[in-house]
Design a protein around this nucleic acid. Structure first.
Lengths: 195, 195, 195, 195
DNA sequence: CATGAATGAGGCTTCATTCAT
DNA sequence: CATGAATGAAGCCTCATTCAT
């Protein structure tokens, strides 16, 4: 039950990312992950409950540190606008820096069954809480519209950035993703209507 | 190959939607779909090439008429703003009117393998072309900002609406989706920033 | 039960030969044969009990006339040696004249299940009886060795000619088969040993 | 791919021979073979690529050692005549000693599809090469007729012996096969004609 | 006589997980 | 802790045959 986080724990997770990115979700057999990690098939089960546990742990580890890192960048001296831009830029940056992870989170892991996806959503909450905090702060200091529906705003922000990343991955990461941070940021803030 | 549309064709597609919605993508065996449709297993293959063909046909039929229907609603006498609102409202309306279909398109069908997803994307293009036309029209008549990047704007619109629907489905369709059309519409047009 | 031999009876058998030769035994579905014959699937069952019946009838018809024809060529004024040569030459000739039939009898029909093969052997007896008669005649008039074991001799004759034809078919009928009649005839009569 | 020969490898091949001989080629399901071998269905696939691979391996193993064994018996001190007799006798002996194998090679395996049959022919070449060598030797030392066509002679020898064995199997192995070695040998050498 | 839409049984193969060493 | 050989359940699809028209 209690995960033993020996050195092989991360070794296996990294192998899983690599295998899924290279071979696709449905071709990522436990034996293939074990081979990539340089351990025996059975060893996997000393560190993870089952295959699903590898995938949720993968998401937990990668997204956990992902959100943690963004938080360290949002120092309290920054304006809400600046924070909002950094949030988006770091989101794009981290995925651009790890194509493997991008493929896995945007395409492959979404092929998992509904149960796994529910757990992933649980993990995603950390990110959404961060967005929520930013929205509340901005509404209080007058940067965001005071009557925003937080839930809808969250869905617009996440939905937009996620769709932008997914399209980039589908186009095989052929263009620069990070340079879209500013236009996306502006579009989310200013909307589509001419002012 | 060109096996076509007897009355059983739609019968089978509707059965597929129902079975996938109730049991999930990975539990939607051909035999289960056949039983639900009230035909023999083999009969499926008089109307469809294989299982994947059922699913792409499902998407084709449902989304095809979906986009067609929206187009009929966007009469040329309407303002761009009105058209944009109708686009969003009809999108939400049609999915709210068919919970089964909503579950299938937002959650279950995304679990399909990469090949099927590519075909689905092909079909989705019809919707995106519609959005594109609206954006171009609005930029020309001064409703939308003239310097909008169509691709990014499309991604914001689709990403947001899609995320709104997915959240609704994940909350088991417990609240009214259509009433979100106006706030979503306003948010997309005006953005998050206080003016 | 009693086979109705309308014009479609032969039409179906000829279609079967063609389909099996072109597509192979395992790809010769009833529906394909029906289409080739220009009749509906169900019509097949007005003329034949089942699929196996098509195949045995095919063999019966083709081999029946095959043996009958050879018999007409073996007029009583001929020497045993001449008759023996004619037997072999006509055997080779008829198969060379109908490549489709050759492929079917030498390769494809041997893939049938054991039951069908037993029936085919039953039909083959007509040919073997003919060989037997020739052997007996030859032993009586001193042309063949008097102490020949008829059964073994029959197996040598049939086994050799059959193997020669099969090799020809396997080489895609690329060389002239009939010209082998004489050397095969000589080899069977004189044996391998230098005299 | 290169999955190889644990003790279960032969266990499975022997089980396949037994199952095919007893139930026929078309009734030899993988699950039946696994059960007979005393292993799980999946275990089969640790040792063989697929079902076809079981059958070609079966033929390879059995016929491979078959030809090898005959070669060990053809010591260079023997006359060509003696070698020729031994070739035939050992051929008959080995099949008489393993009725199951005889049924499989003479009847059941010939029902396989064309691809498998091509592979089997590949394996058969080892036998035919042996015959060829013997023919060449005999022609050189004056035992066989100098102007023999090797190809035809090979076809007569193989065709005859094969037909003899097949007839024996079809008569359910009820008589002694090996005692036919000498008469067959004599008939092949001396031919049918009275001298 | 003729049609052809509908039937439904049957088998090869994969791969997550276990457990004896 | 680590191994990896063995397990065995589960599903898509084909095609000979039927029968209502």
């Amino acid at each position: 039950m209690g995960k033993k986080k020996g050195p092989k724990y991360n070794q296996i997770i990294d192998a899983a990312v690599k295998v899924i990115a290279n071979h696709g979700y449905h071709q990522a057999q436990v034996s293939k992950i074990a081979k990539e990690a340089g351990v025996a098939d059975g060893t996997i089960y000393l560190y993870f409950e089952n295959k699903e546990d590898i995938l949720t742990s993968l998401f937990e580890e990668k997204l956990g540190s992902f959100v943690e890192y963004i938080r360290t960048q949002l120092t309290s001296d920054l304006s809400t606008e600046k924070k909002f831009l950094i949030l988006i830029r770091k989101h794009l940056e981290q995925l651009q820096d790890d194509h493997h992870l991008a493929v896995v989170t945007q395409l492959e892991l979404r092929q998992s069954n509904t149960d796994l996806r529910l757990k992933i959503n649980e993990i995603l909450k950390g990110y959404l809480v961060l967005v929520d905090e930013l929205l509340t702060e901005g509404k209080e200091n007058g940067f965001f519209q005071a009557d925003l529906d937080n839930r809808l705003a969250r869905q617009m922000i996440f939905g937009t950035v996620d769709e932008v990343v997914t399209n980039w991955v589908m186009k095989e990461c052929k263009y620069d993703l990070v340079s879209l941070a500013e236009p996306v940021h502006n579009m989310l803030l200013g909307g589509l209507r001419s002012s």
